[in-house]
Design a protein around this nucleic acid. Structure first.
Lengths: 343, 343
DNA sequence: AACCACTGCGCAACCGTTTGCGCGAAAAGT
DNA sequence: ACTTTTCGCGCAAACGGTTGCGCAGTGGTT
């Protein structure tokens, strides 16, 4: 008994008026008399009228849909960001079309293509790890589909982006450890190729120098982010001639690997070894031995801001406002969060 | 310089042929000669033709979009399931429209409405915690939008569903502990109101009885899933006159709370206290002291199966096959996974 | 030479909605 | 009483494709 939704045409026939009148009446157009307007609305309700959005989308050339392309949804950071994106979009009556690149640059290209075909109104993107060319995004400009990058943003001028500045958080982190009395602070950083690694290193150095201490390059080691390599980095740091009593790690996972290591090593020196990490993932709440602090990167906020920007761009477009010469680039200051565990 | 995508019409004019010929040529329709077909394709490529999907969707009354409504994307279980949904859908050229109910029944209703307006081809739903009426889903049948429920499924006949049967896993879990020599096995179960709690209890009892042991109801306590209440449950179990040496917990979080507790209590008895939990969340991999085993619920698989079913239903619809009298109901057997940690 | 089948393509309707424009009638202005 | 304005509504095009049907031309069969 599948009763296809009623259309404007059917309402029109039932009332013996024109389709356009029905359409206008339902939109409270001024040129439709009060009585007809009410009649139309009543009948529409009776017939369970629902506008066919696909027709509207088609007609208006707008889908009220924003595409989201990110590496991996099941990563806590991204699922949190996506959650924010969906919520923010929902409030402005937009829906979210979701796709994962799985950190595959090729798939990312295909997805951009697909999003374009779906005629999304705009795109939110967090780059795949190995994306190094950006023409597929350039092409979107031709179709007037705005793109806002978040978290993993390309090194390009003239883009819209939201990202977290790691430097501040790192400075805070190092300061925090210095205040607690640590003097030899190690850092297990990420691969040198990552932009984020550079920011962390900069922050480390600035904090050290502002405290009028001497920067010792041997205290920073680069890690490929695997558990094995973390082990290597840890032993390297512990073997340092200076007695490392605190370590800043590239992210929570590295910290957890390292903590596990130190505890299994059972060195007396490790009793006081303190860790600070990045991300502040929810799993931290469930750990027994957690880093003493974590640099929060606000995935939820990033998702929210990025969506705000995109919606703003879309609203501007609607208003036919002057050609956008402005580019939105928000950097959120990362922030140190102490983990108050009664541990 | 926003060059709107080329349309069939423009290609047709350029070649001095009709629109329909262009359309058919691009679809390799038999009735178009080889030469024209090639000419059309060449020009289409030159002009950067991209079919306007919204037009196609509208025309065909099909959007190649499936809606996903779930409680909270940032929960590991759901982000993993969603990841699977997206992937499976992607392979069949469908895209995913995402929305979160935040465990709010009212919002769930609105979302269903919105999905209907967006003319999604089908819907994947995991219910909000407090959803108790299901008319909003019934209404979809009128519009011929199939719905497949997963994980949190409604207690209704004649629906499509994918869910995990906890009984098997629980039996395995208890058996596993019995084989390891435990005789007094406690259980921190969820609230009695949850269906899933019942399944776990059943499994527990069956395993005990199959091993010709006597079921002791005092060994099962119900927890409201907060950390505080977990504490209460734990002390209650440890105070039991029988000496509890192993505990099955409702989920990983409860297990972690409990493990943290036992270690801070420092009772000698706790040295050998073993835990088994459910879910097998990724965070387990990063724990120092993990449950000895976990009942896996296969979020990824659930998402995959649910999507498979939905796509199958859609394919059937296309084939105009007889009115669906069949209902797909897949129950995945939960399965005990040992956590091999060299701990 | 008449008939038929087949090939290759165009015509036009259709999907449901929006919207510029025009038109008749009623109300208002002179 | 005649013109002008306002009001209320309908006509029809447009958005970009898809598809049933028809039609001309070609080639083959009797």
């Amino acid at each position: 008994m599948l009763s296809k939704p009623a259309t404007l045409k059917e309402i029109a026939r039932k009332l013996n008026i024109s389709i356009s009148t029905v359409s206008r009446a339902l939109h409270d157009h001024v040129s439709i008399g009060l009585t007809t307007r009410q009649k139309v609305k009543r009948v529409a309700a009776e017939m369970n009228y629902e506008p066919n959005q696909t027709a509207v989308f088609f007609q208006k050339g707008k889908t009220f849909t924003i595409g989201v392309i990110l590496p991996e949804l099941s990563e806590a950071f991204f699922s949190s960001a996506t959650s924010a994106i969906e919520e923010t979009a929902y409030q402005k009556n937009y829906t979210v079309l979701l796709a994962q690149s799985h950190d595959n640059a090729q798939k990312e290209i295909e997805l951009v293509e697909k999003m374009k075909n779906h005629r999304v109104d705009g795109l939110l993107v967090s780059l795949a790890k190995n994306t190094c060319s950006f023409e597929h995004f350039e092409r979107l400009k031709k179709y007037d589909i705005p793109v806002v990058f978040f978290d993993r943003i390309p090194p390009l001028p003239n883009i819209h982006s939201v990202a977290c500045n790691m430097e501040t958080g790192t400075i805070e982190a190092v300061n925090y450890l210095l205040k607690k009395g640590h003097r030899a602070i190690g850092m297990i950083n990420g691969p040198k190729t990552l932009f984020a690694s550079g920011e962390r290193k900069e922050g480390y150095i600035k904090a050290i120098q502002k405290n009028r201490l001497k920067f010792d390059a041997s205290l920073i080691v680069n890690c490929d982010l695997t558990e094995k390599d973390t082990e290597r980095c840890l032993t390297e740091l512990l073997a340092n001639k200076r007695k490392v009593t605190a370590i800043v790690t590239f992210n929570d996972y590295i910290a957890l690997f390292a903590i596990k290591q130190t505890r299994s090593l059972q060195l007396p020196a490790n009793e006081n070894l303190e860790f600070v990490s990045y991300a502040n993932l929810p799993l931290i709440n469930y750990m027994e031995h957690v880093p003493v602090a974590s640099v929060e990167q606000f995935p939820y906020l990033q998702g929210q801001k990025a969506t705000d920007i995109l919606l703003e761009l879309l609203a501007n477009k609607e208003r036919n406002s002057v050609k956008q010469a402005a580019f939105y680039n928000i950097t959120i200051e990362s922030q140190l969060i102490e983990n108050n565990k009664e541990d």
